[in-house]
Design a binder for these strands. Structure first.
Lengths: 207, 207
DNA sequence: CGGGTGACTAAGCGCTTGCTTAGCATGTTG
DNA sequence: CAACATGCTAAGCAAGCGCTTAGTCACCCG
């Protein structure tokens, strides 16, 4: 029942401290939160899906919301990494942007399960964890803005308002996680390439 | 506590059958569902916000989900009306599209409260009501696709794949309801105009 | 072998949930 | 005036919730 993208984010060969049981709980939580929403998911659902009794959850996580925080933090961090790598590449702004959109879109299509939690369950986070995640989101947006600014300065982009353009770019990618399903006709890679073309045109490149 | 866009959708001078009490409950439900999500909202929250005891809700609506269905159905119908009006205008495809995006975006910014419910609480709808709403959503998407096809046929748009382009157009507009707040720096109208420009470029017009 | 440790379960506590019941005030109708 | 309808409330029910408690079992170290 684990989808591939989710398994990739939290790989089986425990990299740090996480035990196999904790990982099973986390994957079960991702699946449940994505399918029915955080509030509609019960701790019994999660524990049962992980093959445990309800009480076992609390040995590995202090609360239901701790599970959500862990998922949200990791998911956001992975997205930020991807965005920052595109921005750090030794390429002109247009090519950085193409790569960013391709990867960002691919990520939200491939990982639409995690993406749905990351982008639509923010309101359920405890205040303190929300603050951490909000900062990660701010940095994602800022990185995108920087590339657009560089492109405008180089004369390869032409936009009315950088902030709005950056919003549109991230918004397009984020919303993929809302509508994309494993039954969608395009592969994540193909969708990424198509969105790359659309966004570059939107930013006035290739004109 | 009622926002303007919400009040506009369900105006005070009852047009049909709805009593003033039923309207107050509906507006309270919109506010609560949008702010904390459907599952996190209790029937007590709604009734109290409408100035009634919990039991009064059930005199006007058969269940909590009946309230959600009513909100979702009305909201989708209003969106479809707006989209179909743009497509029916006696204008070339490029101008139909500009108008569609301007109105669609303005609607999702201005009515971000209702928009959040309409677009992010679909999964909580009873199966039968979901089917009705899914059909409205299909017609919205189809109308957008038709305008793009007409523009391509007329040589004023140039896109790799019509379906993907239509997805991108609606997706951009829908996602506005996720991030827009009353504290956003742009007015709904200004955002609509800017998105209109971005989308036309994305579709290869004005080239 | 004895004693301790860590992962787990059976049972259930206190509370909240969506919704129901019984009844009360008001206004309308014959 | 009696009879009923309407719109509401006070009280509460059954079910389900997040989370806790007390204890079991397998395993490790001396």
């Amino acid at each position: 029942m684990n989808d591939r993208a989710t398994a990739d984010l939290w790989p089986a060969g425990a990299p740090g401290e996480r035990t196999e049981a904790a990982r099973r709980l986390l994957l079960a939580a991702v699946e449940s939160f994505a399918r029915r929403g955080y509030h509609a998911t019960t701790t019994r659902d999660i524990a049962t899906a992980a093959g445990m009794s309800p009480a076992a959850l609390y040995i590995h996580y202090s609360s239901k919301s701790a599970l959500l925080s862990e998922i949200s933090r990791t998911g956001h961090q992975a997205t930020l990494d991807l965005v920052e790598q595109a921005a750090a590449a030794d390429l002109p702004p247009v090519k950085q942007m193409r790569r960013l959109v391709e990867e960002f879109t691919r990520w939200h299509a491939h990982g639409h399960t995690v993406g749905r939690i990351v982008n639509h369950e923010l309101h359920a986070l405890p205040e303190q964890d929300f603050a951490v995640v909000a900062e990660l989101r701010r940095r994602i947006e800022e990185t995108v803005r920087r590339i657009i600014e560089a492109g405008v300065a180089a004369g390869s982009f032409e936009v009315q308002d950088v902030r709005t353009a950056a919003r549109a770019v991230t918004s397009l990618g984020i919303d993929v996680s809302r509508w994309y399903t494993d039954r969608s006709s395009e592969t994540p890679e193909e969708l990424g390439r198509r969105y790359g073309v659309l966004v570059l045109r939107m930013l006035g490149a290739d004109g």
